[in-house]
Design a protein around this nucleic acid. Structure first.
Lengths: 203, 203, 203, 203
DNA sequence: AATGAATGAGCGTTCATTCAT
DNA sequence: TATGAATGAACGCTCATTCAT
């Protein structure tokens, strides 16, 4: 990468970082391009040189955030051979990432939803990718006889939603104080449901 | 209720109905008060006679929608003595209501989230009320020995999130075609988790 | 005056009183007809029954206030035979009236000016009437040999302006604390100018 | 001053000039920002780039107008050593400036008054500055034995008011046709009051 | 590449006035 | 007479986007 490419990339970074802050704080609609430019140490024109529109900037941000999130979770899962434990790992990692980055959580789970129909596709994509990750574990678990056959696709969606909601509550209401504290109860719940585990298969 | 009160109430209704349509279609930020007024067969000034601001109108809408939803679910639950079955009923009712009212679903689950910090409190309230409903069932189930002691509060949140996500997917991605088709798999999942039921307790 | 005429008149009074308060407090442009109606214990429709428009109401108020002011000053002057002393009396009475009715002062001297071209005529009329009152004294004084011939018309205007400004300062800046304290210095000034009186004619 | 600064300044000028016209013609409340923008050969957004609000624009205008007026009067006064003649100069200059700029007169003496409480402070300031100018002359005159000791502060206020009213009459009623024609009579009046000068000191 | 002045459509809100009851 | 719901034009202001420099 030569000099000017490096500079270009670092400018993009500045803008994306500022955009994350501002979009997460103000929401897509209320975020002002002016404000993002100011925080990027750029001018409005400069910002528009790197991104063709506010929408494209938000999309790029969602893209990047999604990718960071997914790749980190996938990496963590890769190390774990047991399918169900792999799910636990995914859960732990998600709580860990969001727990350390409330801004990211707010962006992906709160602001992206109401930002407008233009972003639904991207969001649906992220949700689907996540659900697939989990559905994959479950398929493996079923194949290995660790779980009975069931609608693993829907289970992935529901799993993701349950986690989502716990994170969202943390973002909006500040409970629990440390997001990661929700792990044990959430893990148990996702595995065994509200009826709880059979006596001989817990842990 | 005398004549003029009736008229006043019906005007409010017209406006709220139109607002539901428009907010759900365009999102809070993109919705134009003009458009809501037009659809209410009123003028902008007329709308502002009944609601002091766009924000207040949205809030009133959230209030009403929340209350309708909750009260219908509570009514359905009241008829069911068994705690766990009560949870199933809640699930079925939620899927039924939203399944027949995509607009309502979009408003409460999608648009309300990104609408701005002003609405977070109201939304948190709704989420909490729902989670409490479920937590109540679970507490009863635990008391009746139908489920082991666990963090029922968190379980309520997760339960609600799981349902939420399934509905949201339906709203955003159109899957499954009939929302209520998700009931059996979702019920099983919420009850017994991804690990599935013990052989002797599946219905 | 029969029953209904009495009622009608008292309604007008209520409205005019409220209008004085509100116009003086908020200025013509910022005053809301709603607010005046509310303070009159009437409805907006009721107000419009008695006055055809906001403008007409303000005009009626100016009319009444002007007349009250002028007639009180004229009455006070009537008792005084000496022309120059009559001017002093006018001055004392003006300071007395305004000093006890800041609202009135604000209405006539501050808010009426910027209220719009529609009111210029009425205001010019009031100013002219006042100036004439003084010019009359001065003409008498000249005729009596108490003052040299001069442009008494202009002198009336200037006299009125000097008093005006003192009152206005009191309204806007609160100085002097008691408006009537300005009397002695102002009297001297109006009579003898900044050069002061001849040694033998100062009181 | 470089190129872009010049341009920026000239834009401000255009806007201020247009604002003077429009505010003086329509009054603060009735003036439309749109109209000012149109007359400035700018867009509304362009105007708002240079001034943060209608209020701020009006304030800037008052500031500038006050300063122009005061500095021109002060300059004229500086050339005159005799204290009382200095007052005459001030009077002549004021009549000269306003006489050649009816718009300015209308803005400062008519529209600024009723524009709203937000502008009272600025206006009071202008009035006080003017009164001080005159009070200064009088203090000098007293020190030089040209006038007896008296409340020079109040005299400054009254002096200013007298002039004010003559100008205001000219603005509102068009009398006298040429404002500067009022000079001789007004000068005499301010100096010697309605009682006229002693025989030996009139010019 | 970058700047920041400029554009202009669009928005939420206000308010004098009207009118059915 | 009186009410208060309704009207609709107008307004101040914002902001994504463009473009001359």
């Amino acid at each position: 990468m030569n000099r000017s490419e490096t500079k270009r990339a670092s400018r993009r970074r500045q803008v994306l970082d500022a955009a994350l802050e501002v979009f997460a704080r103000d929401g897509y609609g209320n975020a002002a391009v002016d404000e993002i430019a100011r925080r990027s140490d750029t001018s409005k024109g400069g910002l528009y040189f790197h991104f063709p529109s506010k929408q494209a900037l938000f999309l790029a941000l969602l893209d990047e955030a999604s990718e960071v999130l997914l790749s980190r979770v996938e990496r963590a899962m890769a190390a774990e051979p047991d399918p169900l434990a792999r799910g636990d790992t995914a859960l732990r990692e998600v709580l860990h990432i969001f727990g350390g980055h409330r801004t990211l959580a707010r962006l992906l789970l709160v602001e992206a939803l109401g930002a407008g129909r233009e972003f639904n596709a991207k969001l649906t994509e992220l949700h689907a990718a996540f659900a697939s990750l989990i559905a994959g574990c479950l398929d493996d678990a079923v194949a290995a006889g660790l779980a009975p056959p069931h609608d693993t696709r829907l289970a992935g969606v529901a799993w993701f939603g349950a986690v989502n909601q716990v994170v969202t509550r943390w973002v909006l209401a500040g409970e629990p104080e440390r997001l990661e504290d929700a792990y044990p109860a959430l893990r148990q719940l996702l595995r065994y449901g509200v009826a709880g585990p059979r006596g001989d298969e817990s842990r």
